[in-house]
């Protein structure tokens, strides 16, 4: 491994990434702590958007756009529909957290401590040179349809199954025998 650039003199890309990362983590925290259901969904949009920015910084353009399209576009919309269909209250609700909260906080903090420790310990010296274009749609597309075509097809079957499953579960006029 070649010598690693100092942590004390960050590049511009790193600064941007850290800022975006901070936004993502802060938004995620708000998602899990906010007292308003709809706000949680909206903070999720912010979090996912920031993550898409992170992907861009990491030169994964195609993934970033897919993230924006599917997560920010489809998934959050789906979640909002879910909220509406379950008649989630608009505005503050006092009981969004279960009684399990202290235990959850403890476990989450322990997880964070463990993961951060291990990750810092393991990848202190890892450094990646960013070369633009590696994550372009062309490169990824050729990789998918050359090397990953079989998993891709399998995945399409999975999607179909999930589609049918969701329909069956949602419709009330289909009864099990």
């Amino acid at each position: 491994m070649a010598e690693v650039p100092s942590y004390l003199s960050p590049t511009g890309q790193e600064i941007v990434f850290l800022l975006l990362g901070a936004v993502a983590v802060g938004a995620a925290l708000l998602v899990v702590t906010t007292r308003q259901l709809v706000h949680a969904a909206l903070w999720l949009v912010v979090c996912f958007g920031a993550l898409a920015g992170c992907y861009l910084v990491l030169t994964a353009e195609f993934v970033a756009w897919v993230q924006v399209l599917i997560y920010v576009g489809a998934v959050v919309a789906l979640l909002l529909f879910g909220l509406m269909l379950t008649r989630a209250p608009i505005g503050r609700s006092a009981d969004l957290d279960s009684g399990n909260r202290p235990v959850a906080a403890l476990v989450a903090l322990a997880t964070a401590a463990l993961l951060v420790t291990v990750v810092i310990d393991g990848f202190r010296t890892a450094y990646a040179d960013l070369t633009p274009g590696r994550g372009a749609a062309k490169e990824l597309g050729s990789s998918i349809f050359r090397n990953w075509v079989l998993p891709f097809e399998a995945l399409s079957v999975l999607l179909l199954a999930a589609l049918i499953g969701a329909i069956v579960l949602s419709r009330t006029d289909i009864r099990g025998r």
Binding site: S98, N100, V103, A104, V107, A110, T111, L114
Partner: peptide
């Protein structure tokens, strides 16, 4: 019967 507690225990064990 609290599933969250079960998962908490599970994760604590994994940790």
């Amino acid at each position: 019967g609290n599933v969250q507690l079960y998962v908490s225990g599970l994760l604590a064990g994994v940790l």
